[in-house]
Design a protein around this nucleic acid. Sequence first.
DNA 1: GTCTATATTCCGATAGAC
DNA 2: GTCTATCGGAATATAGAC
Lengths: 183, 183
Amino acid sequence: MSTRSEIIRIGDELIRDKGYNAFSFYDIAKALGIKNASIHYHFPTKVALGIAVLDEQMAALEALIEKGVQKEPLDKLKDFFSIYIKIEAEGKICIVGSLASDLHTLDVLLAAKLKEFANRTLEWVTDIVKEGHEKGVFRLSSTPRDKALMIITNMLASLQLTRLTGGQDFNTIKDTIIKELKA
Amino acid sequence: MSTRSEIIRIGDELIRDKGYNAFSFYDIAKALGIKNASIHYHFPTKVALGIAVLDEQMAALEALIEKGVQKEPLDKLKDFFSIYIKIEAEGKICIVGSLASDLHTLDVLLAAKLKEFANRTLEWVTDIVKEGHEKGVFRLSSTPRDKALMIITNMLASLQLTRLTGGQDFNTIKDTIIKELKA
DNA sequence: GTCTATATTCCGATAGAC
DNA sequence: GTCTATCGGAATATAGAC
């Protein structure tokens, strides 16, 4: 693993653990056993690092979408859930939720990347829901886009809320979404 | 309006606009036309201000609950929605969602208040859903607690997501929740 | 690529005059 | 209650040696 990709990985974790405005280059330097200034060799500014983190997430998203393109709608949806299952196991939150909370403090380039990422996610889940509806396996009481938004918001905010309410509600919510969706 | 309550009001707005770690006492001082140090007369620390903001929100929540205690479940739910309708009109986000993103950077006292507030909200909505189910007006495919969590997460994260996806999806989501709930 | 050293800015907080 | 002045700390970022 190159130092550059390690910095991206730790930066990503810090954003989803403490938030973009609360982590510092020192946090990363400490974790890697190098000095503060060395981070600036790989990323001139904090904004540049933030953009690299989102580029990495976007690439991972596209890879996940591509890998499941032949799957059935329900299995595609489970691929989507797998993102949040992993985050939940880490005790962290979704990067979209984290950065959305800081939106009005973000550099315009970073904010643009974030919007791109959120819209790509919404597009993907909307397509899954639409395909499931057309194949007769999903039951809808709204447009595919609205249903997709409801599923995404359930996942995104569950990670934030269950850190506060302490229960193991995350898994039952996931199951209830599927139960309500099945035709 | 006393200076103290003005500080709380602006602090609340700043948390839901920029996030707890991104706003400063100077932001408040500037908005009120006073100096930085004057804020410290009313609130010795930033944590003390944060706690006062949550205390105010908690009092408002209890007042809203109390005011609707005689209402029908659907109208109680609409009272809950009214919180988010107001926030959406301001272009801001839910304070629980904002602070939850910063949870691991918050003072323990502030974090405790936040958990208290989130649990009280969950308790309220759970009771609404349960009452609606018992009266036969709400249809459930999960426990009242799970359904309440799904409704809350829909609202909370809608405010974060629609800042990114730009649509007017917030209102249709609200309507879809009610449509799916009606027996 | 990583280091030391440093410039600069900003923030939370305190002291003391009015 | 608000002011001026200031302290101490932390963060982003740069310069230049190795």
